[in-house]
Design a protein around this nucleic acid. Structure first.
Length: 598
DNA sequence: GCCGTTTTCGGCCCGACTGTTTTCAGTCG
């Protein structure tokens, strides 16, 4: 089993342990172990297992090391099998119903003998659930509603879509006279690729009008909580949103707390404790003395007018929200070694875009005009190759015609944006490219992508892509895994091996910025970039509006700790042209390091 | 189950909200 599969098993064991009423800290140990494991590289895990040093990883002790070893070697867990034999799978499903936690599920099971959601629905309709101790009519109704809305409640949303809902709410909150500060927090602010719900943090003195405004927004279908410091609503799209109201002096602490991630917060609190302080959403206080953190925070919190001040108080450089994933950012901030992250304004153009020649919805000239309006120095056109019949892939002749059009367009000088000639060339099932070398040689660059035979084995797919990477005409690899967020999983492939091959062959890997893709995933970039992999942030635009997807790509790049220098399309046109020319001239494997700009 | 330069035992983040209670348990984040 690989580390992801093992981590999934450990998390599942934690869930099952919850249902048995186990010690919560034991459960937390399994969850934390799974997280630690996930943050290791597969190769690190192999090494640690081989050298029997797994227990050197913080959070993994004897028991977890044994579990992990067993799962790695055999793919099975005796503990998991024991738990599965004793717990009906329907109980795990019940945990997903909002309002139902392990205690209530256990009560429902033990006292009513219920093991499935269907039985639970019947029992609620019969009024039997309301009669249980600690339950009542409202709980029963909430369970029924939760089961009905399970799909919508549980669904995550693309960051791009959630951002569009959040933007007007933030603007509206800021416009209220009672509000001095308002920000979105949570996974939206951290720019996760998908978002579970929205969190808004508001500094206000008079809360009632703010709550009233919030719960009466268009699209609000249900108000699920409404108090003096918090209100929750659910939109008709299923997206949920929380509003949290704090006094102005607590704003920075609350914003930090609700931005998370959970891992980041745990580490921040540990860091605070290590220097004699206690950090909470309420403030930062001395960890000694009587009283709760909240009581002390109200009376004596160290002031923090901003998140920056909060980090400073803990001896840390400011950590941008995108990095707050508990993946080493606190250590880096302590050493003042955080990267200077790429910004949207750093981009000078992009390489992977489509026109009406293949499956795009805007013409070459419309796309160019749109790029010009964005201030781009260059726009790469990479329409599909012949094998992508469904996308009207270009024949050799049509490609030659398009290249001639591009040269003619550039010659007019009509746009400040220089158009580069490229192709998104299919990687055929055996790893050959879909155009002959001679055709590829007429282009400024070549993006290679998989669009067929998604069901190949991992070994075949990996070998196929590596063969394409080793092709001397290949400039960059498009959408590495083929995933569509919330819709389609990645095809099977060994990402590590492909990154190795790209670095060895000086091939760029694209960060496809289409909000449905964001592929290659941000989690791989930090290490890959440190090893010399060059990134290109490409919108994969199929219309003029699609060019703006690059902002989602920049978000993902920032999450991957990428700097401006790590991304090819931050370079000026001349530098990009000379880089591409060098690659075409057979500089294969001998490309000098990228010049440093800015 | 994990951890430890005060500890090998006794902690492990903790507060808001809801619904059920009549002082608090469970859930959530």
């Amino acid at each position: 089993m690989n580390k992801t599969a093992i981590a999934d098993v450990l998390s599942h064991i934690a869930t099952l342990l919850e249902l048995t009423g186990e010690n919560p800290f034991k459960i937390r140990a399994y969850i934390s172990g799974a997280r630690q494991l996930q943050s290791l590289e597969q190769s690190e895990l192999e090494t640690l297992l081989r050298e029997e040093r797994l227990q050197s990883v913080k959070g993994i002790g004897a028991a977890l090391a044994q579990q992990i070893g067993e799962l790695h070697a055999t793919g099975r867990s005796t503990l998991l099998e024991q738990l599965q034999a004793s717990i009906a799978p329907g109980l795990v499903e019940m945990l997903e119903v909002p309002g139902l936690g392990p205690k209530k599920v256990k009560a429902i099971h033990d006292q009513l003998g219920i093991t499935t959601l269907a039985e639970l629905t019947t029992a609620c309709n019969d009024g039997r659930v309301a009669e249980l101790a600690g339950f009542g009519a409202k709980t029963q109704e909430k369970i029924l509603a939760g089961i009905r809305n399970r799909e919508a409640y549980g669904k995550r949303h693309l960051w791009w879509a959630a951002q569009q809902v959040a933007e007007p709410i933030i603007a509206g909150l800021r416009a209220l006279p009672q509000v001095s500060q308002a920000e979105a927090a949570g996974s939206l602010r951290r720019c996760m690729e998908t978002v579970g719900d929205l969190d808004f943090i508001v500094a206000a003195t008079d809360v009632a009008p703010v709550v009233e405004w919030f719960v009466t927004q268009p699209g609000v279908q249900e108000i699920t909580a409404r108090g003096d410091t918090k209100a929750s609503v659910r939109f008709d799209t299923g997206l949920q949103a929380d509003l949290r109201l704090v006094p102005p002096e607590q704003f920075a602490f609350a914003l930090h707390h609700f931005t998370g991630s959970k891992d980041h917060n745990v580490q921040m609190r540990q860091r605070a404790l290590s220097i004699g302080l206690s950090l909470s959403e309420w403030g930062l206080v001395l960890s000694t003395g009587e009283g709760t953190t909240k009581e002390k925070a109200a009376a004596e919190s160290l002031p923090a007018a901003s998140e920056s001040a909060l980090f400073t108080a803990l001896g840390l450089a400011y950590i941008p929200p995108e990095l707050r994933e508990g993946r080493g950012e606190i250590e880096a901030a302590e050493a003042d070694a955080l990267p200077h992250l790429i910004e949207l304004d750093d981009l000078r153009g992009a390489f992977h875009n489509h026109t009406t020649a293949s499956d795009g919805n805007n013409t070459l000239e419309e796309m160019t005009a749109a790029a010009d309006a964005l201030g781009w120095s260059y726009l790469g056109i990479a329409d599909h190759s012949p094998s992508s019949v469904q996308a009207r892939g270009l024949s050799e002749a049509r490609l030659a015609e398009q290249v001639a059009q591009i040269h003619a367009l550039n010659a007019t000088g009509r746009y400040r944006t220089h158009v580069l000639t490229g192709t998104e060339c299919d990687i055929l099932p055996d790893g050959r490219l879909d155009f002959d070398d001679g055709v590829l040689a007429t282009l400024d660059y070549v993006v290679v992508s998989v669009h067929s035979a998604f069901t190949q084995s991992q070994d075949d797919m990996t070998a196929r892509i590596i063969r394409a990477i080793e092709h001397p005409r290949t400039t960059m690899l498009g959408h590495l895994t083929g995933r569509l967020l919330l819709r389609r999983e990645s095809y099977a492939l060994d990402v590590g091996k492909i990154i190795d091959a790209a670095i060895a062959n000086h091939v760029v890997i694209e960060l496809n910025a289409n909000p449905w893709r964001l592929d290659m995933d941000w989690r791989h970039w930090r290490k890959a970039s440190a090893r010399g992999l060059l990134c290109a942030i490409n919108p994969d635009a199929h219309d003029t509006a699609g060019l703006e997807f690059v902002s989602a790509g920049v978000n993902a790049a920032r999450k991957g700790w990428l700097t401006k220098n790590a991304v090819l399309n931050t370079r000026p046109l001349a530098a990009v042209q000379s880089w591409l020319a060098h690659r075409r001239s057979g500089g294969h494997g001998h490309v000098p390091p990228a010049p440093v700009h800015g």
